[in-house]
Write a protein that binds this DNA or RNA. Structure first.
Lengths: 332, 332
DNA sequence: ATCAATAATGTTCACGTTAACATTTCTAGA
DNA sequence: TCTAGAAATGTTAACGTGAACATTATTGAT
């Protein structure tokens, strides 16, 4: 492997001069700089990031963490997030992707290894991780879940408002028997979406039927099973608000399997607006959550947090948007 | 940050002794070792991986590369792959995820930065990358696309056989006017699946209609558009084999949008068996490709390749499997 | 031409770790 | 008790880079 010392010898200068030239220091004369750059290119020199990191106390690594990679994180969610982050961080930084549940203890998560951490947080169970990262003084951005800590940069979509709008829309279409398939237990998003659902019902003075709230876990199968459960009720709902699109898809399947039709017999609304939502049958009415935008902003924030340490904590709300498609029918 | 020298001072030994103790060297007496380990735990010591990497000429990093993260790689494919790899590599290694198309030149991809590279290869356009990695002598495993180089470990599913079986099945069901929606141009998988399609037709002496082969690009939208094109033909096909599930879903939508039915009017078969395939309407008959298994095996291979350098190149074929669901109808 | 100021480059050290080699301490056999 | 040899630990250097400080070269005003 060629080092700056090799270049130094060939250029007849000291290795420090080479270092400065490569880092485009104004201290080095133009001709010298050119010569060094040329030799470096010729030798196919690439800097040793470990040495660089060691001396500069940086790791050139950004960690992207999820609550879990394999459990409760849908494929599209994972993919969108990675895309969003990747789009922002250049070659200067490497991206490290992991689930928190891969770790038994966090000692290996320190500021030697991570210049900054982006946490796509889904559950309160992430709090010990957040605490650790804070204690380690690693720049941190938390996405997707509201954190009660005004020193942390927090980028979230307002899921409560989003789901409230969705349920209000169902009410406007004449539905009053509206069920809710909840998200994974313990996930903040699940709780928020439920709150939005309840708020909408309360504001419109619609009585709340406890049997209409069932607990899913964000995957398609649970959507299917919980919908079956709702259908077996003495008085099944005429509309179902699902806490994410995956479960909505499962629910639609269950409805069709029981011989009923969407939206003629039962209306369905999802949450997320994943890519498939416009290709379901019928096309799924859902609340669009801008995951890629959130990740994008998170990545930008973490970079500025790393570069200039004086970015203060803030909570950024990104709007959701109700997308009208074909899975809801007006009744009465 | 606490270093081994801090521990050394407290333990009243040299830093080398600490280093050895932490690495569980047999040279150190048990009591000494215990004392050092205890102090280390107390101080919450974590090794500096940069220093370690620098002196040991290792990076503790495995690169997971895709042809492109954002283009032609479906969400589920990306997610499954990451899950598969993550499942194998422990905390010893960092996982970096990137698209090759993020790089303009490959100088930063060298054996200082990567102990090994897993390439989920989708296109011949990856070849310069493969060449570079080989030249850099970085241990390499190529997944998903066949490489004509018997020194490289290559794990692939036999897409040709898989798609041939799918088309044979359509033939058995009485279809003869079978269309093909091809995958992204330049992608080896697209080519292989087309070959399987053609082989099945040729073997059964079914004449090949050129208008029945249309070129998609693996996303749902292209499936929709290309299906529309097929439907506008004078004599539309009675069955469509789609080179992946995403396009099959698009195609199904286009068929319904035109007022026709799946499978009553037109049968559809996909490829991949993504999670959604059993929740489409009708449930999608498709060829299951074990992406997670391939990634899993790839990760295991790269680890043994890193640890013991004497693993020889080989090509591992993983079987596909035709999954029978409801999107195909027997005719005549 | 001289000198001071400044520009350009060089020397040496530091980062935290492992490894080669050096030294000290212990053990066992006489 | 002495001593050879092994066991345990210490000293020093090295990895490749950047930074503080030191030195030399250049410039410009007199």
């Amino acid at each position: 492997m060629v080092t700056i010392k090799d270049i130094a010898k060939l250029a007849n200068v000291s290795h420090t001069t080479v270092s400065r030239a490569l880092n485009n220091s104004p201290l080095i004369k133009e001709p010298t700089k050119r010569k060094i750059l040329e030799i470096a290119a010729q030798l196919n020199y690439t800097p040793n990031f470990n040495a660089k990191s060691l001396v500069m106390q940086k790791s050139h690594t950004i960690g992207l963490f999820f609550t879990s990679i394999s459990d409760g994180t849908s494929a599209s969610f994972l993919a969108e997030t990675i895309k969003g982050v990747n789009h922002v961080i250049g070659q200067e930084y490497n991206l490290y992707v992991r689930g928190i549940d891969d770790y038994k203890e966090y000692s290996s998560i320190n500021n030697q290894r991570f210049d900054g951490i982006i946490l796509m947080s889904q559950s309160v169970s992430d709090n010990p991780f957040i605490y650790h990262v804070k204690q380690m003084k690693i720049p941190l951005v938390v996405l997707n879940r509201e954190i009660e800590d005004d020193k942390i940069i927090n980028i979230i979509s307002d899921d409560k408002v989003g789901s409230r709008q969705a349920v209000e829309y169902l009410l406007q279409q004449g539905h009053t028997n509206i069920a809710l398939i909840e998200g994974r237990e313990g996930f903040k998003s699940a709780q928020q979406r439920k709150e939005g659902y309840l708020t909408a019902l309360i504001e419109e003075n619609v009585s709340i039927n406890k049997a209409y709230s069932v607990e899913g876990n964000y995957d398609m199968e649970s959507g299917y099973n919980k919908m079956e459960q709702l259908l077996s009720l003495e008085k099944p709902p005429t509309a179902v608000f699902c806490s994410n699109d995956d479960m909505a898809i499962g629910a639609i399947n269950a409805i069709f399997a029981s011989g009923l039709n969407v939206p003629n017999d039962i209306s369905v609304v999802g949450f997320d607006d994943i890519g498939f939502a416009q290709y379901t049958n019928p096309r799924l009415t859902t609340v669009k959550r801008p995951v890629e935008q959130i990740s994008f902003m998170g990545a930008e924030k973490i970079l500025s947090l790393i570069q200039t340490k004086n970015v203060s904590g803030e909570t950024i709300l990104v709007n959701t948007e109700l997308i009208f498609r074909d899975s809801v029918r007006k009744i009465k």
